[in-house]
Amino acid sequence: MGFWQGYRLRLRRRRLLWRSFRSRRALTALADRTSALDPDSILLFSTLRNERNRLPWFLDYYRRLGVRHFLMVDNGSTDGTADYLVTQPDVSVWHTDASYRAARFGMDWIGWLQIRYGHGRWCLVVDADEFLVYPFCDTRPLAALTEWLDTGGQRSFPAMLLDMYPKGPLEMQPCRPGQNPFEVAGWFDPGNYTAVRNERFGNLWIQGGPRARVFFSDAPERAPALNKIPLVKWNRRYAYVASTHMLLPRGLNLVYDEWGGERSSGCLLHAKFLNDFPARAAEESRRREHYQDGAEYRAYADRTASATDLSCRWSERYQNWRQLEILGLMSTGGWT
C-alpha cells in the first residue's frame, strides 16, 4: 500500500470519527448506568428499532456469555423497546429519532458511544438479531476468549454472519416473544460461501448462504456481505467503515491467516428469517432506511409468497459451535 493510499484511508477514518463526534447531539440518554463500568468489562453496543419481542432472549444470551454492560441506541421504537430497556439494571439506553440511514445505518451513533465508553475495552457490536458463537462458547465465557486474544496481541475477532431459517415457509412457524429464535429458525447453509480479498481495506468479502441462493441467484454481486468483525479491543481512534464488516485502521481487518494456517473465528447466528420477516420486509422496503435502499427487503417483497421457504435438501440443523467448526465455517485456530 502506497503512502498516498494510506493517507487517504487515514483521512477517511478521521472523517468517520468526526461524523460520530457530531452525531452525539442526536442521542438523548434515557438511562445512563455507565458509571458502573470497570476496565475489564466487556461491552455490547447495539442500535435497535422495535425489537421488544426479541430483547429478553437477546439480553439473556449475552449475559450468559459474560457481557457486563449493554449500551443501546433506540431509534424511534414504537413497541415499548425503550421502556423495557430502561428497567434493565445492566443496560444504558440512548434515544434518537434521527434518520438511521443518515447516521450510516446507526454506526455514527455507535461510533460516538464507543469513543466515549469503549476505549481500552473489548467491545461487541451486534444487531438485536445477531448471536455470537465462538470456539468453546458452551464452556468458556467471553472473557476467556478476550484474554487469550490479549496475550496474543490480537485486537479483533471475526465472526461471519450465518443466516438461520426455518424448514418450510417462514410465516408458518411463529416465534413467541422471549423464545429461543433458533428453536424455530434452526437451519443454515453449510457450505455455499464465497470469499474474495478486498485490497483496499484488507478484509475478506464473504457472500453466499440462503440469501444469495434464493434472493440473488441471478445477481450474486448484489448479495449482502456476510463478513463481520464484531469483537474488537477498542481504541478511540478506531472506526467501523460499513456496518461491522470492516474497520480502519486496516490492520484490524487482517483476521485471517494467509500462509495456510487458521486463526480463530466465530459465527454470528442471524435470526432474521422468522415469521415476522415478511411484515418487516414490507415496512422496511417502504421506509428505505436500509442499505442499498433496503434492496434485499425489496428483493424479498418482489418475490411475494413463492420463495418464503429458504430451506433446501442440504440445509443443516444447527447443533453447536463444534458442528460449525467441523464444517469449516469457523475455526478454533490455535486455541484449545
Binding site: 471475526p158 460461501y193 470469499a195 494467509e258
Partner: peptide, 16 residues
C-alpha cells in the same frame, strides 16, 4: 491447526 490448517478450506480466518 494454527500453522497448517485444513487443506482445501477457504473461510473467514483461513484465506491462503
Amino acid at each position: 491447526r494454527r500453522l497448517r490448517g485444513r487443506s482445501g478450506l477457504y473461510m473467514q480466518s483461513r484465506f491462503p
